[in-house]
């Protein structure tokens, strides 16, 4: 997942569990999507417990990023193309 580490991102949550990260997205963002683990986002396969929740706000995607030793980080990064892909899936709530 090094490609995600090369993005310009903001850390919204650190030290939360994977489940709490998904709940945070649903609580704080009006547009969110559920995808399967392994979904390709920013050229990386997402790690997580199904379903993986992704948020959208403006041109930003909010997504969990799991590191084996350090747990889940909730990141926010610009991704208009990723948002278009998510909306095209039409699997919103």
């Amino acid at each position: 997942m090094s490609c995600i580490e090369q993005l310009e991102y903001e850390i919204l949550l650190q030290g939360a569990s994977f489940k709490e990260s998904g709940e945070y997205i649903k609580k704080h963002f009006s547009e969110w999507f559920e995808v399967e683990p392994g979904y390709r986002l920013f050229d990386a396969h997402l790690i997580g417990v199904p379903p993986v929740v992704l948020g959208v706000e403006g041109e930003d995607v909010i997504f969990p990023y799991v590191k084996p030793c350090r747990g889940t980080f909730l990141l926010r990064a610009k991704g208009p193309e990723e948002i278009a892909k998510l909306r095209a899936r039409k699997k919103k709530r």
Partner: peptide, 15 residues
């Protein structure tokens, strides 16, 4: 042994 490990197992369950 932690939440991260559960996430990797969850990923394998899907892929």
């Amino acid at each position: 042994h932690n939440d991260g490990g559960v996430s990797y197992a969850g990923t394998l369950s899907a892929i």
